[in-house]
Design a protein around this nucleic acid. Sequence first.
DNA 1: CGACGTTATGAACGCATGTTCATGAACACA
DNA 2: TGTGTTCATGAACATGCGTTCATAACGTCG
Lengths: 208, 208
Amino acid sequence: MAPRRAAALRGGGGEQSLRAHLIVTAERLIAERGTAGLTVRAIARAAGVADGVLYNHFADKEELLAHALRARVRAVERGLGELPEPGSGTIEGNLRTYLAHGLDLHRAILPAFAGLLAQPEVLARFADLTRPDDDWRDRLIDYLRAERDLGRLAPQAPVEPAVRMMVGVCHEAILSLLLRRSEDPDAAPVPQDEIDAVVTAVLRGIGR
Amino acid sequence: MAPRRAAALRGGGGEQSLRAHLIVTAERLIAERGTAGLTVRAIARAAGVADGVLYNHFADKEELLAHALRARVRAVERGLGELPEPGSGTIEGNLRTYLAHGLDLHRAILPAFAGLLAQPEVLARFADLTRPDDDWRDRLIDYLRAERDLGRLAPQAPVEPAVRMMVGVCHEAILSLLLRRSEDPDAAPVPQDEIDAVVTAVLRGIGR
DNA sequence: CGACGTTATGAACGCATGTTCATGAACACA
DNA sequence: TGTGTTCATGAACATGCGTTCATAACGTCG
């Protein structure tokens, strides 16, 4: 039927189709180095297959990249676990969880998308891709509104600006991490006490 | 001495050196389309000169790009005017000015840098380039600390988280603008009332 | 066991890019 | 006017990319 030499190279199992194998390999490379200088040959070499295989399973390089990015996004979301329910725990603790969640999400996603930001025409082809931080932002908005409806926040609490700020903090932290990484590859992420300070300030901002 | 055919093409004046002319041209192209797909030939064509001229004045393409980016950053900063002094006006009004300033700055700068974010090794060559939003951020920190020292803010006001949020709001606004632009080229920037809401929330966050 | 269809192979292709260099045009000076 | 120097010119080069396709290796079926 299908895989021959390549299947043998990939190990005895071989229950994974070559198509899936390519997606997994591209996903790994994207996670490591982003989409920027990622070549067809690099993917093929990493997958242990010939240069042209890609075109037996995808229309072009971008279609493979789209599938790989989707897989990457799903993997990240799966690894981040559940977000708090409204009414449970303290709002402060829950916001801290949301912020940590958002920071992890952005740290995992933004580098992969950085190469696409520069090319709007390419980015447009990925528009149907679930935009992970839009999801996260919507859930944060829903969460705060629900807390407001439960009476645990003042009725006039400015939910939208608070969310805008928390999303912004995530972007800012990861962008500055990217910039610092260009000089020092081992730059550290945002320390915990700064996260706490932001949560405290946001809580004051929405009237606690 | 120097310019011949090209000088004539550029107009009668010709007091501008070809080197400066190349920088200005590249700066214009960067402002319009970013550094992403910018080729040596595109710059040469836009400047009305031969393909290879660049190498009579710069070591390589990246050196020209560095000069052009520097020029672009300076031009933007020049166009944005002065920031408020501590002690003058209201803190609310001043923060609004800072935020508008930061939004303009990021809208003008971030698209040009988007292509570089994806390539850390290239970005590292531009490390000496004044990082415009670092400057802006430092000035905002200094401003709020000065207001605190003047007694117009509580001594324990959390300045750093507030600044982190405002910088983040700028990043977030421009990044989401870039993303929306990839689908709708005429997407609108952040409306004024959202800016006001953010400023109000930040003010509450630092204890007003 | 042999014919057939499927599909991985990887060399080759076309193209775009950054860069080089032999050429000659424009100027300064004698 | 003649000579030397400077430097713009743009065709040519080297490289790397995405993509194609004739070939051959493999599994299936009669």
